[in-house]
Design a protein around this nucleic acid. Structure first.
Length: 389
RNA sequence: CCGGAGUUGGCCGAGCGGUCAAUGGCACCAGACUGUAAAUCUGUCGGGCUUCGCCCUACCCAAGUUCGAAUCUUGGACUCCGGACCA
């Protein structure tokens, strides 16, 4: 009998309600309860997957944020799968554009490093699976190949719906798109149904495709559609939050705007295997304004809070991961102090009790300690970075 | 298929035969200022030097015209944009 923690599962799926089908919490709750019931009755596990393109070095927004979500889902009782999408990567012409290179990086870098990320956040490694697209696409399901699924599913997708969802590939919709790129979204939908995953997971930027998956499910014949315990269902979606980048970008009206982390701009993000020196250096340069409670309105302060990458990381990554933040500073600045939740920290930060400089040092130290095993892995396997430098 | 436009340094973008290693903007890097960062100011900003100067490699690729080409000619590659065809 599979055991599930409904509350944890609901928490883990909260973005589904907010972003994918807003305002329909009851429907989602019903779907979720139905899935749990059928799973328990049939013994078939609820399966999750998160797909990654093998496009470059893994930053904390990818590695840690998705690992935290995986941990939560595992704790709720879900079977989690990491899917390495080499074909999708190939379509997007990442790395040197060669499928052999992409596959090599997937096996020698991406898979082991993602596993290290999951390990440092405390996932149950025995229950975590890695699925390589090259293996998956060679396999068959009930006598049907992946490409059979893809064909059947593509027939159910309209060109305009596919076009709408291509922003996820990193290309701007509206510009010229080659036909191959249009294959991307249909393949993602096929991935979901072919693997038979009931919970699909990605960064929030991919929710359009998740909607596409949900829309497609009822259109498919029983043989191909998503089922649990023999009953057809729509996949549920979940998204991890996006971490703010560390550098200010000039916004339209001159206001402070911070982009999300982007591996194409190394100065905006910390890679999970950065050296301690790199982490210190990057964090030292992060945007982090001193709060002036005397001269700023509450609204302005709230705005700054939203635009502060350091606070953002603490709020959605460091504290939710169950980590404490040790601030080490001279007595003249207040002496050492340890925070175990975001509210306490926020309180001190916005009342001026905690200086940005001290906060940064604490975060840098925290991350360095946290990611040490990942760094060790890279140090012991330097060849894994081949093709990525 | 026919016709037009374009390809410049990390990016955008000037230059249209010598004075161009190539204006300008952005980014990056260094320094000043702040107990962090940001903002602001200064310098740097293809590479190497024996650094008031010199050398090398550079303006999509190849060949050519010139004393001399990023700038002209020819061919090639790629990108964009029109039009035609639609029995």
């Amino acid at each position: 009998m599979n055991k599930y923690n409904l509350q944890k599962l609901k928490e883990a799926l909260e973005f589904n309600a907010v972003e994918v089908i807003p305002g329909q919490q009851e429907i989602l709750d019903k779907e979720l309860e139905f899935i749990i019931e059928k799973s328990q009755k049939s013994g078939e596990p609820i399966k999750h997957y998160i797909g990654f393109e093998i496009s470059g070095k893994i930053h904390i927004g990818t590695g840690i944020m998705s690992a935290l979500k995986i941990k939560k889902l595992q704790e709720a009782g879900v079977e989690c799968n990491i899917f390495l999408a080499d074909y999708h990567t190939w379509l997007n012409e990442k790395l040197d554009g060669k499928i052999e290179t992409i596959r090599s990086v997937a096996r020698n870098y991406f898979a082991p490093v993602m596993l290290e990320c999951c390990k440092v956040v405390g996932c149950d490694m025995k229950k975590l699976n890695i699925i390589f697209a090259e293996d998956l696409y060679e396999s068959s399901k009930n006598g049907q190949s992946f490409w059979n699924y893809d064909m059947v599913i593509s027939k159910k997708l309209s060109l305009s719906r596919v076009l709408k969802s291509i922003s996820i590939t990193g290309k701007e919709s509206g510009g010229e798109v080659d036909f191959g790129t249009l294959r991307y979204a249909p393949m993602q939908v096929s991935d979901c149904f072919f693997m038979g995953t009931h919970i699909v997971h990605a960064g929030m930027d991919q929710r359009k495709v998740h909607v596409l998956m949900r829309e497609t499910a009822p259109k498919l014949d029983y043989e191909f559609t998503l089922k649990i315990g023999g009953k057809p269902i729509k996949p549920l979606a979940t998204h991890h939050g996006l971490l703010l980048g560390m550098k200010k970008e000039s916004g339209a009206g001159g206001e402070v705007v911070l982009g999300k982390m982007s591996k194409s701009k190394p100065e905006t993000c910390v890679f999970v295997h950065d050296t301690p020196q790199d982490i210190e250096k990057k964090i030292k340069k992060a945007y982090c304004p001193l709060v002036d409670t005397a001269n700023q309105t509450t609204e302005e302060i709230e705005q700054e809070q939203k635009n502060n990458p350091m606070l953002n990381w603490l709020e959605i990554m460091i504290f939710p991961a169950g980590r404490e933040l040790r601030v080490i500073r001279p007595v003249t600045y207040g002496g050492d102090k340890t925070y175990s939740n975001y509210d306490d920290l926020k309180q001190d930060y916005f009342s001026g009790q905690l200086h940005p400089g001290d906060l940064k040092n604490a975060i840098a130290l925290n991350l360095i300690e946290w990611f040490e095993p990942i760094k060790d892995y890279i140090d012991n396997n330097p060849e894994s970075l081949k093709y990525l430098e």
